[in-house]
Nucleic acid binder design. Structure first.
Length: 789
DNA sequence: CGAAAGCTGTTTTTT
DNA sequence: ACAGCTTTCG
């Protein structure tokens, strides 16, 4: 009988722990007390967290309500919940899994009154922050040219990340003139946000910590609620997040943090790597578990990642290992321009797809969002389904911000920022002059601008015609509020807004390509409203706006869409793809020029960590590429191959010999350039840059009509080579020098016979029967076939 | 008051 | 190259 119990026990645990290695299992089974999991890239971190949650519930009998898991993105949160669901079957939906920000919003909505806010507070995005700061600078008569608003925004943000109040900031910086200015603006900024019943991203966390600090009873409630706390991507937490976690975990000390110091890439937004490095000092009894076996990448890729990251000084020494095969070697290509690079990537993708790879298994990563434009264009050309993640956010588009501003002003009439945004959109003949009058009136009587607008006829010195218009606007907004009050659904109100404000009809009347896109976007937003209403029956406008504010583009990533994914290296963190392209492997692009110029040595180390993150996203094959020159800030500049390429041992590359040569050549070149004194100096940057065209013949297809080559003349190439641009384009898509029946040689496939040659849209398509590997169809300009006997 | 035209600085990464 | 801001004109 006892034996049966034991049996059952083993089968049971086996069910949960199936497929975990020793270290992973230890991590899962550590229940009480602080735990630090140092999890290298691809070491099954998510697996461990989900299994640990399952273990706590099923094995330790922990109530799912007592578990809090903080993830980095909403997508990660959703995934984790789904995966826990699969393991435990029931109760997973009661585990609280969310990001720092959404966790805080949920807490703050509940206790808003305790910190002097109303429950329906707005969440300001960076655009909103910027307009607020801008208007303060105007009022304070601070010249934005001497003190740019960006500086104020980042200083304020930094202060909040350290949990430093405006008062304390002022006290600490009394001596420094510029800092006193910042202190004044910071103080005023917080005042305005409060007045508008709004919080920015940093406030969400700041105010939560403040709430806990001033209300021990509230803190106690949450300490009891969250007896088991897990924090993912701990290396990217900032100081105030650290404080918040510390407060919550103080009572039960069941804190488990997971992270990897090598993947810390968010220093620029306050992430503090010492949080993870000093965890053992903070919690002396912490158990530390290292996960170093990588299950994601094949050997060559992992070796490259290890080689790169080893160039960093300040890191915990560790090395990932794998028992997978070496796999395919890494590919590297230096193209002439960013357009050629895009063409190459597109053609490689087509080859992969022809071999049976799904589009969904491919990702293109890059350092800056700006690079996505050309790459995206090339995907269109090549007919490759793709999606760009991040970048100019859907919610940052003008029309979306307008419509959302209507919703926000309906939700929170206290806010003047959104009032100003929509009061004259579409044009209602209400100008700045009238608005200042409304504002002074509002200030004088302690009203919001919306309230003042409702009483516009009382405002002194205002024309009856104008006050009528303003009043009408206030009535309009009130009518929407009434609809909601009467229980009308959100989507019904949404439609009424578009109609009654005349926003939609104006766009329809415009009837340009642009206005049609805007209408589509507005329709897309409507879909989101409907979707939200369906999924959250209880929730209202406030909740909808909150979801919009905190959700990111990436969160909508779905396995269902069979598309190539384009995103920045930053966005790619936490994801994995069988085939990964990293574009723009050039000094000043990646590592960024900023990092190269910086006097902080960690700046370059952070870039290197980013490179490490990028490489380790790849499972089967990694393609790196660079351009010899590209358009940057309106100038065509030439660039060297990224130093990170040279940090990868040549033997890991497909064309090992070439890589060796390049490394050698590069060494001498660098010395030469250094001796000339122009390494990274401005002489290679601005208009004085001496542009040397490459020999046209060895170029990849260059047919982009928007390419700057079409306008080559304007870039310092006056009379010496007038026909260059033209000759260039012709030769790129010109007829190859071989015919059907010729024997040709391909750099990789060897010798074969040309079976067919036909002119496609932009290029010749050539079909070759190779002796070694059979029939292949390819684009002539990519194939670089040479006649052979 | 509003639209159009010119001038400026700007790009690293994001919850 | 581009957007956003200021200036200018109707």
């Amino acid at each position: 009988m006892f034996g049966i119990y034991i049996m059952a026990f083993f089968i049971y645990t086996g069910g949960i722990m199936a497929g975990l290695n020793d270290m992973q299992q230890q991590a899962c089974e550590h229940v009480d007390g602080p735990l630090l999991i140092l999890a290298g890239a691809g070491s099954g971190k998510t697996r461990v967290i989900t299994h640990r949650v399952a273990y706590l519930m099923d094995h330790e009998g922990v109530n799912p309500l007592n578990i809090l898991a903080i993830t980095f993105t909403n997508k990660a949160a959703r995934e984790m919940r789904d995966r826990v669901d699969l393991i435990v079957g029931e109760g997973a939906d009661r585990v609280w899994v969310s990001t720092f920000h959404s966790l805080c919003v949920r807490i703050l909505r509940r206790y808003a009154d305790k910190i002097g806010y109303e429950k329906n507070f707005d969440i300001y995005d960076s655009d909103d922050q910027k307009s607020t700061v801008k208007s303060i600078l105007k009022d304070f008569q601070i010249d934005p040219k001497r003190y740019p608003e960006k500086m104020f925004m980042s200083e304020i943000s930094k202060a909040k990340e350290k949990y430093m109040s405006p008062d304390e900031f002022a006290r600490r910086n009394a001596a420094d003139y510029a800092a006193t200015k910042v202190a004044e603006v910071y103080t005023e900024y917080q005042g305005r946000l409060k007045k508008n019943n709004a919080m920015d991203f940093d406030d969400l966390i700041y105010k939560t910590v403040e709430l806990f600090e001033h209300n021990p009873d509230v803190l106690d409630t949450y300490q009891n609620r969250f007896r088991y706390i897990m924090v993912d991507e701990y290396q990217d937490t900032n100081h105030i997040q650290f404080l918040m976690v510390k407060m919550l975990a103080r009572k039960y000390r069941n804190l488990c943090v997971v992270g990897d110091d090598d993947q810390s890439i968010y220093k620029f937004r306050g992430a503090n790597i010492t949080n993870i490095l000093n965890f053992e000092k903070e919690y002396e009894d912490a158990k530390v578990i290292k996960l170093e076996q990588n299950y994601r990448s094949c050997g060559n890729i992992l070796a490259a990642a290890n080689a790169v990251i080893q160039h960093n000084e300040g890191r915990k020494d560790k090395a990932l290992w794998t028992d997978q095969d070496a796999g395919e070697k890494i590919s590297f290509d230096q193209c002439d321009t960013e357009y050629a690079e895009g063409d190459l990537v597109a053609s490689r993708i087509k080859t992969l797809v022809r071999q049976g790879v799904g589009y969904r298994d491919i990702a293109i990563l890059y350092r800056t969002n700006a690079q996505s434009r050309v790459l995206g264009e090339k995907m269109v050309y090549a007919n490759i389904p793709y999606r760009v993640y991040g970048g100019t956010n859907f919610y940052a588009r003008k029309e979306i911000k307008d419509v959302l501003a209507y919703l926000k002003v309906i939700n929170n009439t206290t806010d003047n920022l959104y009032f100003r945004r929509v009061v004259n959109v579409p044009k209602r003949g209400i100008g700045e002059a009238s608005l200042s009058k409304v504002e002074s009136f509002a200030d004088a009587y302690g009203l919001s601008m919306m309230d003042a607008a409702a009483r516009a006829d009382e405002i002194p010195g205002m024309a009856v015609k104008t006050s009528g218009k303003i009043k009408q606007f206030a009535t309009l907004i009130q009518s929407f509020r009434d609809m909601l009050q009467d229980g009308e659904s959100l989507d019904a109100v949404y439609d009424r807004i578009l109609e009654d404000t005349g926003y939609e009809s104006e766009l329809i009347a415009e009837h340009t390509e642009e206005s049609m896109t805007r209408l589509e976007n507005i329709d897309e937003l409507r879909n989101k409203v409907v979707e939200f209403v369906d999924e959250n029956e209880e929730a209202g406008l406030s909740e909808f706006l909150e979801e919009i504010a905190l959700v990111s583009d990436l969160d909508s990533m779905s396995e269902d869409d069979n598309q190539v994914k384009l995103m920045t290296l930053h966005s790619a963190k936490g994801l994995e793809f069988p085939y990964v392209f990293i574009c723009g492997m050039e000094d000043r692009v990646f590592p960024s020029g900023m990092a190269l110029n910086s006097d902080d040595p960690d700046a370059l180390e952070e870039e290197r960590r980013l490179c490490y993150v990028g490489i380790t996203r790849a499972m089967k094959k990694l393609y790196l590429s660079a351009a010899r020159e590209r358009m940057m800030h309106g100038n065509r500049i030439s660039s060297d191959v990224s130093r990170f390429i040279r940090e990868i041992p040549p033997l890991l590359f497909e064309h090992e010999a070439d890589m060796r040569n390049m490394a050698k050549r590069r060494e001498t070149e660098s010395v030469d350039r250094y001796n000339r004194g122009d390494l990274y100096s401005d002489s290679s940057y601005g208009s004085s840059y001496n542009y040397k065209p490459r020999t046209p013949g060895k170029e990849y297809g260059q047919k982009n009509p928007y390419s700057s080559y079409a306008r080559q003349k304007s870039y310092g190439q006056p009379s010496t080579q007038p026909a260059f641009g033209k000759a260039f384009v012709v030769s790129a898509s010109g007829k190859p020098d071989y015919e059907v029946g010729d024997r040709v040689r391909h750099i990789k496939f060897g010798v074969g016979t040309v079976e067919n040659l036909e002119k496609g849209d932009k290029d010749y398509e050539v079909t070759v029967n190779f002796d070694r590997c059979g029939v292949r169809k390819m684009f002539a300009s990519f194939a670089k076939l040479k006649k052979s006997e």
